[in-house]
Every structure is written in structure tokens, then in C-alpha cells.
Nucleic acid binder design. Structure first.
Length: 276
DNA sequence: AGGCGATCCTGAGGGC
DNA sequence: TGCCCTCAGGATCGCC
């Protein structure tokens, strides 16, 4: 389940290969994977030269020198991989989009079995700026002090703190895995109403988030099932998960059995002793 | 208006 | 072995 660390690692693995590349041809096998009121060839960046790969939260934006932007959402099972036709790294199924680059054998593929992800075409950088205004500051690229004050500004809400962490309009990039991992490290119960947190707890949460996201990016993200980077390689941060997916196992800190339940509509795991 | 449940989709995994 | 049911979840929509 790609969240911020997976998308950031993906961005880093694709950037050196894609910067300056000319998009020679593109094929969209499933039209409904693409959103945006732009003709397909134009949307798929055909004829453009890639100028940058940017990220905000879980969204990746491929920008061309002519201004066009194609946003990529991985959703739950999305993959964006540069692959040699003679050495495929991914299954041939569910490849909804393909790009060919001038002078290159490798092709870029967007693969997404569950289709919670997709592509969004935008006319220019201004449209991207407007789009990204709708979501909060990036949870990783933003200084912890600002993350802390951004979160604390939500301190009036009755919603559980986990729902606030998952709300992309507040902070961009956190999903189920990194919400549970940072709440555990901060010692905060996921079902606590946001308005019950103290300033100290907001600070602890901001610094736990920073540490978890930085470690996960450094590990190449978490690969539970589908996630692969731009070269088709898995991440390894799943080995460092302390609570996510470990319901009924002993707490790695105190040994008490980890509890599992639904918070904010998501499966959530926490330690009833270490998290208050 | 904020919070929450339903919805989309496919494949894995468990039970029988 | 094979079938069927449940579950996983990001973002969006509609309801209360």
C-alpha cells in the first residue's frame, strides 16, 4: 500500500532515468484510468521532454518542459516501473498505460490491478499548484515544528487522532501503516479524540512521524504485496514495522499482547499499555 | 459542518 | 482440489 515513503522512493529511483527524456509514444489501454479533460496523446505527454518529477504526499507529478503535467496516483496496488522488454520484472496483466522514450529500449509502465490508482492530466504548473493547494503540507518535506503546529491546529476536532493523520487535507502522505507506526512510537492511542491531545503529545507525534517516514524512505518503503520501486525492486521497511499487521503478537516494547480493531474505518493495531 | 459509512476493485487466504 | 466468502484499503460521495 503505497504511502509517502514508497512514492518518494519511487520518485528517487525514476528521476535519474526520466529527467530529460523525450516521450516518443504512449498507449492507454484502459481509458478510465486517465482523468482530466485533455486529449489522450496530450495527456500522456507525447512529444514532451520530462523536466521534473515532483511529489506531494502520495501523489507523483511528471512535468514536461512545455508545462504539461501528468499526476500519478498509485492507490493501493499501483506500480510505475521502467522495464526492458526482454527482462520484464512485473506480470503482464493490468498494465493500463505504457510509454516509449526516444532512444531507449526500456518502457515505462503503469500497472494497477485494483485500479484504486490512476492518472490525472493537467494543462500546466498552475493547475498543479491549484490541485495541491487542496491538500496539507507534505508530511516528510515539512519541518517537524511546522508538522507539530499543523496537527495541533486540528486540536479542536472530536475525530480520533488517527482520522486526523489520515486526512490528506491536514497533512499529505500518511496512510494506514505510517499512522499506526508513528502513533505507537509517540505513545498515543489511535482512538483518542484529537482534542484530548496535549501540546507535548502533538510534539511527540510530529517527531515520531518524522523519524518513521525518514527511516521508511531510507529502507525503500514497505512492500507488503504489490509495492515495487521504479526498477521493480521491493522495499524492506516492513521488517521494521513494530505494530502494523502484528495484532495478537507481543508488544516489542513491553511484551503485552497488541490489540487490533477498527479506528477511523481502518484496521488499527496498538499496544494498550504503551499507548495512552 | 464535521464525522462516518458505503463504494469502487482484484487477489490472497481461510474454511469446508 | 476447488469453490466461496472475507478482507485489504485511498479517495470520494452522500447521508445524518
Amino acid at each position: 500500500m503505497p504511502e509517502l515513503p514508497e512514492v518518494e522512493h519511487l520518485r528517487r529511483t525514476l528521476e535519474p532515468a526520466l529527467l530529460g527524456a523525450m516521450v516518443e509514444r504512449a498507449e492507454l489501454r484502459r481509458r478510465d484510468v486517465l482523468r482530466g479533460a485533455v486529449a489522450v496523446g496530450e495527456a500522456m505527454l507525447v512529444g514532451g521532454r520530462i523536466a521534473s518529477l515532483d511529489r506531494r504526499g502520495k501523489e507523483l507529478a511528471i512535468r514536461c518542459e512545455d508545462g504539461r503535467v501528468l499526476c500519478v496516483h498509485l492507490g493501493m496496488s499501483g506500480q510505475l516501473v521502467l522495464e526492458s522488454p526482454v527482462a520484464p520484472t512485473l506480470p503482464a496483466t493490468h498494465r493500463h498505460a505504457e510509454w516509449g522514450l526516444r532512444g531507449r529500449d526500456e518502457r515505462l509502465f503503469f500497472r494497477d490491478p485494483r485500479r484504486f490508482g490512476g492518472l490525472v492530466a493537467l494543462r500546466d504548473g498552475e493547475a498543479l499548484r491549484t490541485r495541491w493547494l487542496g491538500r496539507g503540507p507534505d508530511a516528510f518535506a515539512t519541518r517537524p515544528a511546522v508538522v507539530s503546529s499543523t496537527l495541533a491546529a486540528q486540536g479542536g476536532r472530536r475525530a480520533p487522532i488517527k482520522a486526523v493523520l489520515l486526512d490528506q487535507r491536514v497533512l499529505a502522505g500518511i496512510g494506514n501503516i505510517y499512522a499506526d507506526e508513528s502513533l505507537f512510537r509517540a505513545g498515543v492511542r489511535p482512538d483518542r479524540p484529537a482534542r484530548s491531545l496535549s501540546l507535548e503529545e502533538w510534539k511527540a507525534l510530529a517527531s515520531a512521524l518524522r523519524r518513521v517516514l525518514a527511516d521508511a524512505v531510507a529502507s525503500g518503503g514497505s512492500s507488503l504485496r504489490d509495492y515495487r520501486d521504479g526498477s521493480g525492486r521491493s522495499g524492506s521497511y516492513q521488517r521494521l514495522h513494530l505494530v502494523y499487521g502484528r495484532g495478537e503478537e507481543p508488544c516489542p516494547r513491553c511484551g503485552r499482547t497488541l490489540r487490533s480493531g477498527r479506528v477511523a474505518g481502518r484496521t488499527t493495531t496498538w499496544c494498550p499499555r504503551c499507548q495512552r
